[in-house]
Design a protein around this nucleic acid. Structure first.
Length: 426
DNA sequence: TCTGGGGTCCTAGGACCC
DNA sequence: TCTGGGGTCCTAGGACCC
């Protein structure tokens, strides 16, 4: 290690559940769960819900009884609300360090190295300010590597005596050792279920077992990623902060449908709308794509029916961001892969091989009537600006249909911060 | 009846080249 | 009987993250 790194990980506590509470304070102290799209699985739980033994990721229908018996409050996920709350939290965090990485919707790393403050006090004031300005509770973990900051955050959350801020570097070795013994290796950042299983076969179960292990064995078993975690756990920083998000490689837009679909037109409606969403994202990032993948799946959980994965990728000669090309192309690909007789439960599209959108011309189409190209381009722009202003009011015919594909969201709260019609009433 | 969505990176294997 | 060595690129699948 050449320099003394110092990272902090700020993580919102039970983020989605906390966002719901901000706008419904009567939920304070009650068990809350938030469901995934289509009200399928549990994706967030308040502490009270965790205490009831509700696990992350379990299907909602499997624990419906438990939920009813314990008066658990259920919410469908409300991404416009969470996304907006997240950006408010992130802006506050940014004031506490010049170097910030927004790692996920509810987590941010900042670089604390060289800051002329007492770091624990500095982070306590961050916590207070986020809580006070947004209503969202956060905890802060500090360490000389990202893996250690993550681990420290766990401790900050778990033990109230630290008041939400914990610096793992401050521990003397004996206590650090004890801490590692109490954490399963699979709870380290970067060690997932499969790796934990492999490690368990050679009697590595706790983080301390992992810490003590031979680096060669770890690399053989887990590859470079495992080796990185190992080194970070020993205080050698291998993963740096990324202030600028790397250009994305692909844009995915997919859904499990509200009901199983068998009909071509129903599938086409769903995929058209999903394509439009992906294209909007593409344009927001000022990117263009050269490949388009369309896929439809039957439900793998239904054991009595064959599990069918149909998909096809096509490449285009030039990178495009034009929905008037991509939407018909989706329909064309769907026609190629579609097989009648199956019940499809999920589908989507992937835009791949993304590049910066320079509106580059195809070398081989230079001779084409450039006037028709220009017409096409201005039509595309006109539709886009109308849709931005009037809420997606110009549609493709294939976007209109029976809406059978629409996901369930039976328990959605209001979009309090992003929709005029859904403001909080006082 | 009912089982998320959106990403990244790594690795192994195939195709291809000289 | 006997079938090189070294390299690149692409893709599919696996593992991980939230």
């Amino acid at each position: 290690m050449t320099k003394n790194n110092k990272f902090a990980l700020i993580d919102c506590n039970n983020f989605y559940a906390s966002c719901e509470r901000v706008f419904e304070p009567k939920l304070e102290g009650k068990p809350i769960v938030v469901l995934s799209n289509n009200d399928g699985c549990i994706v967030a739980r308040s502490n009270e819900a965790k205490a009831l033994g509700i696990k992350m990721g379990v299907p909602y229908f499997q624990i419906k009884n438990l939920i009813l018996q314990n008066d658990v409050v259920v919410r469908s996920s409300n991404y416009p609300l969470y996304g907006d709350m997240s950006s408010r939290v992130m802006r506050i965090i940014a004031q506490y360090s010049p170097i910030q990485e927004i790692y996920s919707i509810d987590e941010s790393f900042i670089d604390l190295e060289g800051l002329p403050f007492d770091l624990v006090t500095h982070m306590q004031s961050l916590r207070r300010q986020v809580r006070c300005w947004t209503g969202v509770p956060v905890c802060v973990g500090m360490g000389s590597t990202k893996v250690l900051a993550k681990l420290a955050n766990r401790i900050a959350k778990k033990y109230p005596k630290f008041n939400g801020v914990f610096d793992i570097d401050a521990l003397p070795y004996q206590r650090y050792k004890r801490l590692l013994r109490s954490v399963e290796v699979g709870d380290l950042w970067g060690i997932g279920r499969q790796s934990a299983k492999k490690l368990s076969r050679i009697n590595i179960n706790s983080s301390y077992d992992f810490y003590k292990a031979d680096i060669g064995i770890i690399e053989t078993l887990l590859g470079v990623n495992g080796k990185r975690v190992y080194q970070e756990l020993r205080g050698h920083s291998c993963v740096s902060i990324e202030c600028i998000p790397p250009t994305r490689q692909q844009i995915v837009s997919s859904r499990s449908f509200g009901a199983d679909l068998t009909d071509f037109d129903e599938l086409n409606q769903a995929l058209t709308i999903l394509t439009r969403r992906a294209v909007n994202k593409l344009n927001n990032h000022k990117l263009a794509a050269t490949t388009l993948t369309v896929f439809i799946y039957t439900n793998p959980h239904k054991k009595d029916k064959p599990c069918v994965h149909l998909s096809k990728t096509v490449g285009m000669t030039t990178a495009t961001q034009d929905e008037s090309l991509l939407i018909p192309l989706t329909a064309k690909i769907l026609k190629l892969i579609y097989e009648p007789g199956h019940s499809f439960y999920k589908g989507g599209i992937v835009l791949g091989n993304l590049s910066k959108n320079y509106r580059q011309q195809d070398l081989f189409s230079m001779n084409q009537n450039s006037q028709s190209k220009a017409d096409n381009y201005s039509k595309f722009n006109a539709i886009q600006s109308i849709n931005r202003r009037f809420n997606e009011s110009v549609k493709y015919a294939s976007e209109v249909g029976n809406d059978m594909w629409q996901s369930r969201a039976d328990f959605r709260s209001n979009r309090y911060t992003t929709s005029w019609n859904e403001l909080l009433l006082v």
